[in-house]
Amino acid sequence: MPLTGCGNQNADIQAEPSLQTVAVKTLNQTDFYAHKQFFSGNIRAANTTGVGFELSGKIKQLYVDSGDKVSAKQPLAQLDVSILLAQQQEVDASLLQNQADIDLARSTLNRSLELTNQGYISEQTLDEVKGQLNSLLARKKQLQASLSAINLNLEKSTLLAPFEGSVAERHQNLGGVVQLGSPVFTLIQSNTPQAFIGVPVEVARSFSTDQQVSVKVGKQTYTARIRGISGQLNPVTRTQEVRIALPKNAAVINGELAYLDYQQQIQQTGYWVPIAALTEGMRGLWNIYVIKPQEHAFIVQRRDVEIIYTDRDKAYIQGAISDKEQFVSQGLHKLVSGQLVNPQEHGHND
């Protein structure tokens, strides 16, 4: 009796294919994009001044040094004034002698007037006595002027800070002889930080005095105001210099780099998408993958687009795409055109 084998029964049920899940976003059309540009310059105090004595002499005292903070009218240095003091004493003595001579001349004049009235002294003699007194009075004014000049030089022998600030550099040493006008210190004024930034002519024309702008220094961004725009081009950079006042409490250093954040609206229709949603295409174009419904699934379609502008991880694009279409926002390396996928909304595309 033949044996009958017990074979497995073939299933007629075909398994449904597993569709790949992709993250998608929606395209939102806009009429313009903000074109961001950064222009560089540097920080300068309103006043950076080399201060020195208004007369020559030997430095007797230095009261401050590099890095010190100073207030307005604070003494910074002192010249040796021993010669001036000796001259002052000499003029004082001359004034005392002159005053004694004036007193004597006045007494002589009074007696001469009495004798003239009595007919004992001629008019010529009287005129000579008056001339002597006038000469002594003129000499007194001359001595007083000399004394005022000496006192003024004594005042100028103390170097005072012209404004509140800090000492950037000391140029002279104790005991050194300085010439008229030679700088002893370089001072940087406090609480007046300004940024000087060169911009193209067309950008400068869009600015106005007192306009509020954004300036970045280091890691800090400040809201500042334009105080002036140069009326001439820099012959090297072909830019106009814009002077921008930062807040008084801005923590900046003289010479530090500053960047002007300039934004301009460009009227051009397009779409913002993540750069990760684009792949390089042909002839300078780029590709984006959109999805379209097809029966019970969605099919991937490749579209050619052009990048108009980029901002960090975003791109502003135009091309064969439409408003409110959905596009694949990431994971493009796993996809091919015509592939069926299962879309999953992945946030909003601004």
Rank of each mutant, 00 (worst) to 15 (best):
T4L: 09
Q14P: 00
Q14L: 06
L19P: 05
T21A: 07
N28I: 15
H35I: 09
F39G: 05
S40E: 14
N42D: 10
R44E: 06
T48G: 01
G52H: 02
F53G: 06
E54C: 05
L55I: 05
K60V: 02
D65R: 07
Q78K: 15
D80G: 05
V81W: 01
S82R: 06
S82L: 04
S82V: 06
S82M: 04
I83C: 00
L84M: 06
Q87V: 00
Q89V: 04
E90D: 12
A93I: 09
L95D: 10
Q97D: 15
N98F: 12
A100V: 15
D103L: 09
L104K: 13
L109F: 07
S112P: 00
L113K: 08
T116C: 07
T116G: 11
G119N: 05
E123F: 07
L126I: 03
E128A: 10
Q132T: 15
N134H: 10
L137W: 05
K141Q: 14
L143M: 09
A145M: 05
L147R: 13
N151G: 01
N151Y: 03
L152F: 07
N153T: 01
L154F: 06
L159T: 11
A161P: 03
P162W: 08
F163A: 02
G165D: 04
V167D: 03
R170F: 09
H171G: 03
L174A: 02
V177M: 01
V178Q: 01
G181I: 02
G181T: 04
F185C: 06
Q189R: 01
P193L: 10
G198K: 04
V199F: 02
V199P: 00
V199W: 00
P200F: 01
A204V: 03
S208C: 02
Q212P: 00
Q212H: 10
V213F: 14
V213N: 11
S214F: 07
S214M: 11
V215F: 10
K216W: 08
K216M: 10
V217E: 12
K219D: 10
T223A: 15
I226L: 05
R227Q: 15
G228E: 07
L233Q: 01
T237F: 01
R243D: 14
I244F: 14
A245H: 13
A245N: 15
L246M: 11
L246K: 09
V252G: 11
N254P: 00
E256G: 12
L257Q: 15
Y259L: 13
D261C: 05
Y262P: 02
Q263R: 08
Q265S: 14
Q268L: 11
G270K: 00
W272D: 08
A276T: 09
A276C: 02
A277Q: 07
E280F: 12
G284Q: 12
G284Y: 14
G284T: 11
I291A: 02
I291E: 00
P293L: 04
F298V: 00
F298R: 00
V300K: 01
V305L: 02
I308R: 12
T310P: 12
D313E: 15
Q318F: 09
Q318R: 15
D323Q: 05
K324A: 11
E325S: 06
E325M: 06
E325R: 03
Q326R: 11
F327S: 02
S329D: 07
Q330T: 12
H333L: 10
H333Q: 14
K334E: 10
S337H: 03
H346N: 15
G347W: 10
D350W: 10
